[in-house]
Amino acid sequence: MNHGPLLFFGVLATLAASWLGLVAVPRQQLGNLDADLSTNAANVVVTHPPARSGEATQGHAVYVSLGCAACHTQQIRPENGGSDLARGWGQRRSVARDYLRDQPVQLGSSRLGPDLANYGERLGTNGFNLVRLFDPRLVVTNSTCEGAPYLFEVRTVTGEPVAGALATGESGRQMVPKAAARQLAAYLASLGSSAEVPEAHLPAKEEAK
């Protein structure tokens, strides 16, 4: 262990090997993944993952900026890896293809709140989401989610109420969601990845096999 060159070479080689093995090779394997095209029951071509609306894409940026991934995950583990499927958080495990449109992907590492990978499919309605974003405890009494009240502002009603505004307790006042709140709600409503893909079949298909 007294040879400087040997030490240097060993240090370089071990790191290069791990970079090649776990960064370069997966990139080569998964880097060319594209959206999966399939035909649904009504003979319409659908892509998975589906394209997001502009508002939902901006909502993804809001989600990243607020750091929601600190408490929420967006990945469904396989049946032998946890209770995700049993809890109804998704119909199949998540695969790489589901995240093609997410930049950066928000897989999350902590489940203090429910998994959101299929939130749109489970609960996705904008009105519901906005109340929940303002104060989650209005929707779920003992929720530990901090919500995002700063994404809303209380205004007096002059003329017509703003479409989509929430009621406040007082008459003549409305809670208007700012653009970021609407975008975030649209993003949450767009979350869903239960389409059939080659890498992971939906359960019903399994039975037919």
Binding site: N80, A86, Q91, A200, P203
Partner: peptide, 10 residues
Amino acid sequence: GRPAKVVGGG
């Protein structure tokens, strides 16, 4: 191969 178990499907 993949698990043949069905999770509440069908």
